[in-house]
Amino acid sequence: MLTGLNIAVIGGDARQLEVIRKLTELEAKLSLIGFDQLDHGFTGATKVKIEDVQFEEIDAIILPIPGTDKEGIIDTVFSNIEIKFSEDLLKRTPDHCVIYSGITNDYLNSLVENTNRKLIQLFKRDDVAIYNSIPTVEGTIMMVIQHTDITIHGSNIAVLGLGRVGMSVARTFAALGANVKVGARDTAHLARISEMGLTPFQLNDIEDHVSEIDVCINTIPHLVVTSSVISNMPAHTLIVDLASKPGGTDFRYAEKRGIKALLAPGLPGIVAPKTAGQIVANVLTQLLEEVKKNRKGFSS
């Protein structure tokens, strides 16, 4: 149980509703900021404005999966009020206050460094990333079906990257009957691709491996699908970029060439927000139990 723990949930989308539901069931006391248009009520959770929160009493802050933008603005679908996560705000929190976000950026990193607070990136955890790969793959299948006029079975697909998402994507599309080749740089990854019964290729040679593909699925958060790579693709090729913004594709050149390229980060929150929210909620529960143990002056 999280009884006695004061938590601020700031902004977010439908995934945060599962987090709120789980934490209120465990009797945490929640301050919901950026949820003024939310009709649903949760026992133990109070909708408040950010200026009315007593941050001096907050033990943990839960940000949306994307964290903040480069100026510290927090996105929320349940409010039209702009919310900024500032250094002055964070300085008011107790020393033991922990901030949770899916991912981070330079602004957020600077903020926690200047205030000597702890930031935990949930999406850097293997368990969260692996669980999230399931709705990501399902969403990718949906996008490929919607934006092509061929079956996945028998199609030629190139997957870029064999990380936690890339592995799930490659394996699933191969199971659906696609001819899957996977590009990677790490020799261990190339060996694993071969062991999986798929066709490996070195990413440095990507231009030589896209001339006959129907779909290119990128999972690498760096520019790998460059103009020269796109130039070698057939005109009907679909590019689905699953990497975090801004992705790893030259979208401007793809448009110029007439190739459909879709940036699709955050698919779990789009295609399966309930499941994606439950994944985050279950991991947060474990982490917040540690915060409760470490909180100074707490008596169970």
Rank of each mutant, 00 (worst) to 15 (best):
D126N: 14
F123E: 10
S110I: 02
P135V: 15
V98H: 12
Y100N: 05
Y107C: 01
H96G: 09
E113Y: 08
Y107D: 04
E113W: 06
I81K: 14
I83L: 11
I130Y: 13
L90T: 01
S110V: 02
I99R: 02
H96L: 06
D127R: 09
N109Q: 06
I120L: 09
V128T: 13
K118C: 05
L89A: 03
V137W: 10
D88V: 01
E87V: 06
T104D: 03
H96E: 13
E138A: 14
V137E: 13
A129E: 10
R125V: 05
T104V: 12
S101T: 06
I103T: 10
E87K: 14
V112Y: 00
I81M: 09
L111S: 00
F123Y: 10
L122W: 08
I103A: 05
K118H: 15
I130P: 10
V112S: 00
P135K: 15
P135C: 14
D106V: 11
E138F: 06
D106Y: 00
Y131N: 15
E87S: 09
I83N: 07
D127E: 13
I99D: 05
E87D: 08
D106H: 03
G102A: 10
H96K: 11
R117P: 01
S86Q: 06
Q121V: 08
K91C: 05
S101W: 09
S133N: 10
D126I: 12
E82T: 14
I120K: 03
L89F: 04
P135T: 15
P94H: 13
V137T: 15
Q121H: 03
T115H: 00
F85I: 10
R117D: 01
E138T: 08
T104Q: 04
T104G: 05
R125P: 04
D88F: 05
E82D: 12
I130K: 12
G102N: 10
S110R: 11
K84P: 04
D126A: 14
I103P: 01
E87Q: 14
T136L: 14
I81R: 13
S110M: 05
R117M: 00
V112G: 00
R92L: 06
N116C: 02
Q121C: 13
I83R: 08
D126K: 15
E138L: 13
V98P: 05
T104W: 03
D127A: 07
I81Y: 12
E113D: 11
K84M: 10
I134M: 14
E138M: 13
K124R: 10
F85H: 01
P94A: 13
L108F: 02
A129I: 15
I99Q: 03
I103K: 04
I130T: 15
L89R: 02
L89H: 02
V137N: 12
N109L: 12
Y107M: 00
P94R: 14
N109A: 07
S110G: 08
I120E: 01
L90C: 03
L108Y: 00
K91A: 07
C97L: 12
K118P: 04
R117V: 01
D127C: 06
